[in-house]
Design a binder for these strands. Sequence first.
DNA 1: CCGAATTTTCAATTTGAATTGAAAACCGCC
DNA 2: GGCGGTTTTCAATTCAAATTGAAAATTCGG
Lengths: 187, 187
Amino acid sequence: MAAAKDLTTSKQEFINCWGDMASHWGVSRTMAQIYALLFVSAEPLDTEQIMADLGISRGNANINLHKLLDWQIIRKVEVPETRRDFFEAEKDIWKLTERIIQERKSREIHPLTDSITQIQQSLQELPDGSTRQMTPEEAEFAQNLQRMQDFLRLFEQVSGIFLGLLRERKVDQLTSLLGLFTEMSGR
Amino acid sequence: MAAAKDLTTSKQEFINCWGDMASHWGVSRTMAQIYALLFVSAEPLDTEQIMADLGISRGNANINLHKLLDWQIIRKVEVPETRRDFFEAEKDIWKLTERIIQERKSREIHPLTDSITQIQQSLQELPDGSTRQMTPEEAEFAQNLQRMQDFLRLFEQVSGIFLGLLRERKVDQLTSLLGLFTEMSGR
DNA sequence: CCGAATTTTCAATTTGAATTGAAAACCGCC
DNA sequence: GGCGGTTTTCAATTCAAATTGAAAATTCGG
């Protein structure tokens, strides 16, 4: 909230807009703002600087810097002449995308498929391990669960391919393939 | 919170797991739970039923039912013999996906590109409309913004194609194209 | 037009997540 | 070992968003 002394208005706007968007995607505002701040900064910043620019507490800065490190979308950099930690953002948007997809897959998609698998099992097995009879309604539920699993598996496949292309820097190849897609879907 | 009288444990688990996931994606728990409840129900349910099964208040149920209607992932259905509204979920996961992508695009991606466009303009224009000189650092910032716009535009393109395929029920075509992708990326 | 059934609204409250700030731990260096 | 400088921790607090519940509005059959 507290205004940064030396950030231009444009940068401030960017930081805010990034923060707003984050809250719609279940990411804490501060985490997004720190990323945005580092993204718009030409030089790496230390904790003091970040606290001042964003008007946040030390604890808050520390926690969210760690989350961002965890996600591997910012990194620590050594700065001679000082003992402090400095941070810089991953500015390559393709790498950023890769990291975000990767993290969300392992944090949210995988637990989901795991839970569904477990529910599927408990639907068809008794606690002792023998199979049980489902009611027709349960059977329909089981079928819907399976459809969801199939979908998630396909998503896994798509994102795997996509990540592969990103990782190998085949972005231009990707875009040209998209052209192909466009052809084939007749648009 | 309050236990449903007649929901099986599996269904309860599913509803919870859906609710948990939602909170990681910036969607309210209740909204997701109502969707999940309708998804696992063979028959449409009325507000009373939903309140009872989920242990939530009338106001809460009402608001979230409307959000879901807004997203077009549930619908009202007429039930003879009664004046009440009954609701059923969109159970086709492909349509569900289409709706979610569509909604998130217009609610979150478009506002983001709009904001960035505006920031880009304010970077290069003076309030009176004449162009202004950027510092080298601003120029770099402007370049990064442009990269982000390009990315968002590509995302727009990809999701457009994807939605087109989904809408035309060309899911099998989609999966076979994915096979092609896999070939080409050599995995 | 009335009244029962149903839905909608909204000010007040609750809840859970984010944030603070100060104390504790850490870390290299003299 | 002890002393700045720095990071980490965590109980207490704040804050925004979700939720409640009762009152008001709506809708419809008679």
